[in-house]
Each structure stands twice: as C-alpha cells, then as structure tokens.
Simulated scan of single mutants.
Amino acid sequence: MSTLYVDRKGVTLRLDGGTLVFEEGGSRVATIPLAPLERVVLRGDVTLSAGLLGKLGQAGIGVLVLSGRKGEPALLMQRPHNDARRRVMQWQRSQDNEFRLSVARELLKRKVGSQRRFLLERAQEDLMHRYELRTAAQRMEAAAQSLMEAQTLAALRGAEGAAAQAFFMGFQTLFAPSLHFSGRNRRPPQDPVNAVLSLGYTLLHAEAVLQAHAMGLDPYVGFLHDLDYGRESLACDLVEPHRCGVERLTWRLFRERVLTVDHFSRVQGACMLSKAGRQHFYRNWSAVAEGLRQSLRVSCAALVAAITGETLSVASSEQEGDHGGSERAEGVGGGL
C-alpha cells in the first residue's frame, strides 16, 4: 500500500515508532506501518500533530488535505530534490518559446491520442452510440493534425480546445440520462459524472505536484500553461496526457454501478459525492493510481532530461500502454 486515505470524523493520528496509530475516544482502533507509504490523503475532522507532519515530510511522504464540503485541496510536500540547478534551468527553458512549444505539443498529442483511442474502443462495444463516438473520434483526429501543424502556443491551445470539445461530445453518450451529464463543468460540478471527474483530476494533479517536486522541478513553472498566481502550471502540464485514466475510471464506476445517483447529493448548488461514495471511489482509485503514478514519474524524468539538454523522448502508442484499455495501463511509459 503506497497511499493511505483517511475519511472519518473524530480520528486522531500519531506515530509510534515506525507505525501510524489511529485513535478514537482515546482508544487505539487501527495501525498502519509507515514504511510503505508514499502519500496520505486526509478528509474530514482528522487530528494530527505538527511533529507527525514533520516526520511524514522527512520520510518523503506527501500529505493531501481535502477540506470543507467541496474538498478543496491543500498539499503538504516532502523534502524537495537537492539539485536546485534543475529549477534554474527549468525557468530558463520556460523563456524559450520553441522549447515550450515542443513540450506542449508532445503532452497534448499524447492526451488527444489516448482519449481518441478510448472513444474508438467504446464504439466497438456500444452499437447504440457508435455513430456519435466515431464522429467525435474523427473530429479529434482533425484536431490532432492541427496540433502537429500549430506554430504558436495560442494555436496549439486552440486545437486542444477543439479536441476536448469533441471528446466530451462523445464521452457524454456513455452515461445514462439520469446522470444529467452533458459535458464538462466544475467549480462546482453540477452532476455526478463531473463530481467524480473533479475528484479524480484533483488527486491526479496532486500526484503531478508531488512527482515534480521530488524530481527537483518547480510545480509552478510550466510550458503549456503560462505563469498564473496560485496555479501549479507545470503540474497542469503534466496531468494532460494522463487525464484519460481518470475518464476511463469514471466511465467504469458508473457502467458497473459501483457508483449510482444515490451516492450523490446537492449541497450549496454543487453535486457532492457522499462518504459511502467516496469510499467506493478511493478503493477503485487505488487500483489504477499506481499506473498513473508510474507514468507521471516517467514524464518528469523525460522532462528533466530535456531541460538539462538531452533529447526529448517521444511516446509511441505501445509505450502509452493503451492497447489493453485498462485504467492502470493508460498513459504508462514514453516520454513527455
């Protein structure tokens, strides 16, 4: 187990040697060894000391806190990589428009390719919506060609926007009308599908921040995404090729009725996943997260190599691990 999810009110965490101890009402209720943990996700009324946070940081364990009803994320990171030259070179490279364009194009090419393959896979099985799915895939193929021809970041982003619109046009056909999913919306999500996508994207983004930080990169200095106050632009870049892992998982959770309408409620105008629903989600997320984590590590390593002057590696479809259609495999392998 590399990730620990704590979503329970009234729990106190403390460290006893190399063991994380859970207490309720002064009584020990569970223990988890610290050694295999890479990250801890906290939600709800959980109590832990500053000393424990320090120990987690020293052990290289990141902490993601999802606070409030909407689960707003706050990330506490482990020690950064020791080589500050990487961050200096990253900043220098971020001023090179040609380098930015090459990195951004590669990231978006992988994203669009993964999403398009997913729609074509579904078209083979979903005869009722085959036409809509294939039409969306064709539009994505045209957008992918525009990506390859784009000579500026603005043109690249425009092509990516067209691809995203086409993807969600096809993606929405995969869900029951009772879910009221008609495209991507957020802040807050308005329907169950968007609520699950938002949670998955949040966890994926946190993984990207942790990986970038651990590799000695500054999560705030991106290449596709411009500098923006409070935004971890590099993490936003890194998640792009791996979003389809979240989208595949979301589709499967509703298709297999792991999640249903009954797991959601409306709170202050937002569609919210219940505690029982979150437990189902975390259980299934754990099964696919390691593959996404591995893929992010590879992407970060390739980016470090590119920043420091080595050749930018290019991911083939076989390296992407997409041929099997599994959430765990999606996006694994390849370079940027």
Rank of each mutant, 00 (worst) to 15 (best):
residue 145 Q to H: 13
residue 204 L to M: 09
residue 157 R to Y: 03
residue 189 P to F: 06
residue 174 L to N: 01
residue 128 M to L: 10
residue 210 L to G: 04
residue 175 F to N: 07
residue 165 Q to T: 14
residue 209 V to A: 10
residue 185 N to M: 05
residue 182 S to Y: 00
residue 161 G to W: 09
residue 162 A to F: 05
residue 187 R to C: 06
residue 199 L to D: 12
residue 163 A to Q: 10
residue 156 L to M: 13
residue 214 A to G: 13
residue 217 L to H: 07
residue 213 H to F: 06
residue 144 A to Q: 10
residue 130 R to Y: 08
residue 177 P to R: 02
residue 191 D to S: 06
residue 117 R to C: 02
residue 210 L to C: 11
residue 174 L to S: 00
residue 127 L to H: 13
residue 116 R to S: 06
residue 192 P to L: 00
residue 178 S to H: 05
residue 185 N to W: 06
residue 180 H to V: 06
residue 209 V to S: 06
residue 198 S to D: 15
residue 113 G to T: 13
residue 121 E to Q: 15
residue 197 L to E: 01
residue 143 A to I: 10
residue 168 F to P: 04
residue 143 A to E: 07
residue 131 Y to M: 08
residue 209 V to T: 10
residue 145 Q to N: 12
residue 192 P to S: 00
residue 118 F to Y: 15
residue 209 V to W: 04
residue 138 Q to F: 10
residue 183 G to A: 05
residue 135 T to K: 12
residue 204 L to Q: 01
residue 209 V to M: 13
residue 137 A to Y: 01
residue 203 L to K: 03
residue 159 A to T: 03
residue 218 D to Y: 12
residue 138 Q to E: 14
residue 211 Q to G: 00
residue 201 Y to F: 13
residue 154 A to Q: 13
residue 168 F to S: 08
residue 127 L to M: 12
residue 200 G to D: 05
residue 191 D to E: 00
residue 125 E to N: 12
residue 174 L to I: 00
residue 173 T to S: 14
residue 154 A to S: 15
residue 191 D to G: 02
residue 139 R to K: 13
residue 210 L to F: 11
residue 170 G to S: 10
residue 130 R to M: 11
residue 133 L to A: 09
residue 174 L to Q: 03
residue 212 A to F: 03
residue 158 G to Y: 01
residue 178 S to P: 01
residue 145 Q to R: 14
residue 141 E to Q: 14
residue 200 G to R: 02
residue 212 A to K: 01
residue 215 M to A: 15
residue 153 L to P: 03
residue 184 R to C: 05
residue 145 Q to S: 14
residue 171 F to K: 08
residue 200 G to Q: 11
residue 176 A to E: 13
residue 114 S to A: 15
residue 188 P to W: 05
residue 165 Q to D: 15
